[in-house]
Design a protein around this nucleic acid. Structure first.
Length: 283
DNA sequence: CACCATGTTCCTTG
DNA sequence: CCAAGGAACATGGT
C-alpha cells in the first residue's frame, strides 16, 4: 500500500484537478469497497456534489464536497489498502479490470481501482477517527511518543505499525526508520532508552519527509494508462519507481550487504509481516 | 504448486 | 481485560 508519503503525493496531485468539479454519475462496481455505505446512499449524496478540497490523514484521503441544498459539506473517505489507485481518466479510455468505483466528472472519470479490493471509498468516517497524531505534525511530540512506548511490551517494529500510536507509518517506513535510528526491530517498545526514542522520532520524520520530497521532485504521470501510474512507491513499474526503490536502505534487501557496515541484511517475520534490518548496526 | 506482497480487522489463544 | 499471533480478505507476480 501506499504509506503516508505516497498518499501525500497523490493528494497534492489530485487537489487542484478535483477542485470545482461536479459529480455527474456514480458507478459502484464492487460494493465491498464502499461498505458500510450502500450504493443508493452514495449515489444519492454524491450526484450533483462539487469537490471543494482533498486532504490526507495518515494513509487516508479525505475528499470534501459541497452538496446542493445541504448546509454542511460531505466527507468522502478513501483508503488505498495494498493495491488501490485513484486517478482521472479521459472518458473515452477503457476502464481497468479492477475498477471498483467510477465517478463521472465532465470530460474525465474519477477512477478508484484496486486489484485486491482491500481499500475503501466510503462515507463512513470511523477509519480516520481512530488515528493517532500525524508524525509530521505538532501533536506528535517526543514526550508523547516516549510516554506511549513506555507502556507497551510489544516489539518496536510492530508498535510503529499501530495507527493509533502515530498515523501513516507502514511496513516499508517502519523498517527504514529503525535502520536509520540504529534500533533493533525486536526490542520491546518499553525497553527503548530516552535517547533511542529521540533518535527514532527524528528518523521517522526524516524518512517520511525525504520520501515526500523525492516524490514531489519526480516527473510523475498519474494518467493510469499503464507503465508509469504515478504511484512511485515500492513495486510500481517504471524508471521513477526504480529510482525510488534505490533510496530504500533495508526494505526488501535481505541477503544484500548493509550500506553502512556490509553485514548481510536479514529478513525476519514479525506479526506476520516482513521486517528487514542490519543485525550489526541495529541492536 | 509454492511463496510473497505497500493494510486492516477480526478471532483465538494465553 | 489485555496482548500477541494468526487468519481472512482477493488478486497477481515470481
Amino acid at each position: 500500500m501506499p504509506e503516508l508519503p505516497e498518499v501525500e503525493i497523490l493528494v497534492r496531485h489530485l487537489a487542484p484537478l478535483l477542485r470545482g468539479k461536479t459529480v455527474r454519475r456514480v458507478d459502484v462496481r464492487r460494493a465491498k469497497v464502499i461498505a458500510p455505505t450502500t450504493e443508493r446512499a452514495l449515489s444519492r449524496i454524491l450526484r450533483g456534489a462539487k469537490f471543494i478540497g482533498v486532504e490526507r490523514r495518515g494513509k487516508y484521503l479525505l475528499f470534501t464536497l459541497r452538496v446542493p441544498r445541504r448546509r454542511n459539506p460531505v466527507l468522502l473517505v478513501g483508503h488505498l489498502g495494498m493495491t488501490g489507485r485513484i486517478y482521472l481518466l479521459p472518458k473515452e479510455n477503457p476502464l481497468p479490470r479492477h475498477a471498483a468505483v467510477v465517478m463521472e466528472l465532465g470530460r474525465h472519470l474519477f477512477v478508484y481501482e484496486d486489484t485486491r479490493y482491500f481499500g475503501r471509498l466510503t462515507l463512513d468516517t470511523s477509519g480516520p477517527c481512530r488515528l493517532g497524531p500525524e508524525p509530521l505534525g505538532r501533536e506528535f511530540s517526543v514526550d508523547y511518543f516516549a510516554d506511549t512506548l513506555q507502556r507497551s511490551a510489544q516489539s518496536i517494529k510492530v508498535k510503529l505499525l499501530d495507527q493509533t500510536l502515530v498515523a501513516g507509518i507502514g511496513n516499508i517506513y517502519a523498517s527504514e526508520a529503525l535502520f536509520r535510528a540504529r534500533i533493533s526491530p525486536k526490542l520491546p517498545a518499553r525497553r527503548l532508552a530516552r535517547k533511542q526514542i529521540q533518535h527514532l522520532w527524528e528518523a521517522i520524520r526524516e524518512v517520511l519527509k525525504e520520501a515526500i520530497d523525492c516524490g514531489s521532485t519526480l516527473p510523475l504521470d498519474f494518467s493510469g494508462t499503464r507503465r508509469r501510474d504515478g504511484l512511485f512507491y515500492y513495486g510500481a513499474a517504471g524508471d521513477e519507481s526504480k529510482f525510488y526503490q534505490e533510496r530504500l536502505r533495508v526494505y526488501d534487501r535481505g541477503g544484500e550487504p548493509c550500506v553502512r557496515c556490509r553485514t548481510t541484511i536479514r529478513r525476519v517475520v514479525q506479526a506476520a509481516r516482513s521486517t528487514y534490518f542490519c543485525p550489526h548496526c541495529q541492536r
